[in-house]
Design a protein around this nucleic acid. Structure first.
Length: 398
DNA sequence: AGTCCACAGGAAGGGCAGGCGA
DNA sequence: TCGCCTGCCCTTCCTGTGGACT
């Protein structure tokens, strides 16, 4: 037996514990969606007028991450499309997530993306904004149809580009002769709708649906349903599903988190060529998910942001509470050492705020009276994550 | 009561890259 | 190739501020 066979033989001999790993990812569409019957029925009732050629009301969906908003709007949307085919109506459902980087995170990109989904190719950049609107409107109005536009993470879009785009979209029907458009806005920010211009608010939220967090028992049901598709029977030890559900329930009842935990736990078992998923694997999975998320975020940062974080980590080794000024001084040293351009304090201040937003650092603005106002910065991560983070940054900067 | 520190963070705009159409 | 448009990163300039110190 040669070495490469040796390398993989253990893996090949071991049987996979998964039947269909996909069932534990968010892109999977399960056959039934437990504990969301009310939301499905409500949304169906709201969108039903489209089947008789009417324009459904605009709807707003609220709820925290992993409460099924996206899943259900896509589910109801595709059911509607299916039925409309038999019914002689043309209904088109367009889904767009505004957090998709470089796809729909600006006004221009959103319109370009939507046009593309309707079959009209427009350049990614270069056209004036009013032309891209025109292109979208014209494509939309080419034939008689009802278009349901699902805008996911709508708060991210407004935060970045302002609410003018929503104003334009809510008035879109005034300019259309043939087609009708209704909007489904999805957000996990409960205060979002209140922050909108009243005119937009009233037309955007003609109807509202609330998605409460799942409790631990409901999460168990969801996990059992998915696990029966995902795993070969008998691969989960008792208590595994309960543990995943309990951990996810602590994090505001996030079904996505619960599924991730179960999937990663399964992957750990498979990688170690062990037999069964145990409660212990869930604990390891929990930590692994956190570490991976942080490391991926840091890796994806531009060099300047990494330099700022490196500065913070170096200082955090010496003292617990760090101020913006200290971070900047140390950052300058790092830049000199590596030949980077030194950014202004203003810019670095924004980079620090960004790192805070990502959850990599914790900041708090305090006043030290005579000695000024500043951010107090600390690393709010577990020691094992900090260790890996240090390793990653030392590889880059030493 | 007033001062003043060390920043926070808003507004405006410069410069560049990517990508058009002419 | 040129002029034009947009997004992005960044600078410049500026106003705002909580509370220790005088």
């Amino acid at each position: 037996m040669n070495s490469s066979e040796n390398l993989f033989s253990k893996f090949l001999q071991s049987k996979s514990i998964f039947k269909n790993r996909e069932a534990l990812t968010i892109s999977f569409s399960p056959e039934n969606i437990p504990h969301r019957e009310k939301q499905i029925n409500d949304l169906g009732r709201i969108l039903a007028p489209a089947l008789k050629g009417g324009r459904p009301s605009n709807v707003f969906l609220y709820g925290r991450t992993g409460t099924g908003k996206t899943l259900i709007s896509n589910f109801v949307g595709s059911e509607l499309e299916k039925i409309s085919e038999n019914n002689g109506q043309t209904i088109k459902v367009l889904y767009v997530n505004c957090k998709m980087k470089r796809t729909a995170d600006t006004e221009y990109r959103l319109m370009a993306y939507l046009s593309k989904m309707l079959g009209k190719v427009v350049p990614f950049t270069g056209l004036p904004t009013d032309q891209i609107y025109k292109a979208f409107f014209e494509t939309l109005d080419e034939k008689k149809q009802t278009v349901i536009l699902i805008i996911d993470e709508i708060d991210a879009l407004v935060e970045k580009t302002g609410d003018e785009i929503l104003y334009n979209l809510t008035r879109i029907n005034q300019d259309l002769k043939n087609s009708k458009v209704s909007l489904i806005g999805i957000t996990n920010s409960l205060g979002f709708i209140e922050s909108l211009d009243p005119r937009i608010k009233s037309s955007l939220s003609e109807e509202e649906l609330i998605f409460p967090p799942y409790n631990a028992l409901q999460l168990q049901d969801i996990l059992r349903g998915r696990a029966s598709v995902a795993f070969i029977p008998g691969m989960l030890e008792p208590g595994v599903i309960e543990k995943c559900a309990a951990l996810a329930a602590q994090e505001h009842g996030d079904a996505r988190r619960a599924l991730d935990l179960l999937r990663v736990a399964g992957e750990l078992v498979e990688r170690n060529t062990e037999q069964k998923v145990t409660v212990k694997h869930v604990d390891v999975a929990q930590e692994k998910i956190d570490i991976d998320r942080i490391l991926e975020t840091v890796k994806a940062q531009p060099r300047q942001s990494q330099a700022v974080l490196f500065s913070i980590i170096e200082l955090a080794e010496k003292n617990k509470e760090i101020q913006t000024g200290e971070v900047y001084d140390n950052y300058q040293e790092i830049c000199k050492k590596h030949g980077f351009k030194i950014l202004t304090t203003r810019r670095v201040s924004d980079l620090i705020a960004e790192l805070d937003l990502f959850g990599i650092i914790n900041t708090k603005i305090i006043s030290k009276g005579r000695y000024g106002r500043t951010r107090i910065i600390s690393l709010g991560l577990s020691s094992s994550i900090i260790k890996k983070l240090k390793k990653l940054l030392y590889e880059i900067f030493l």
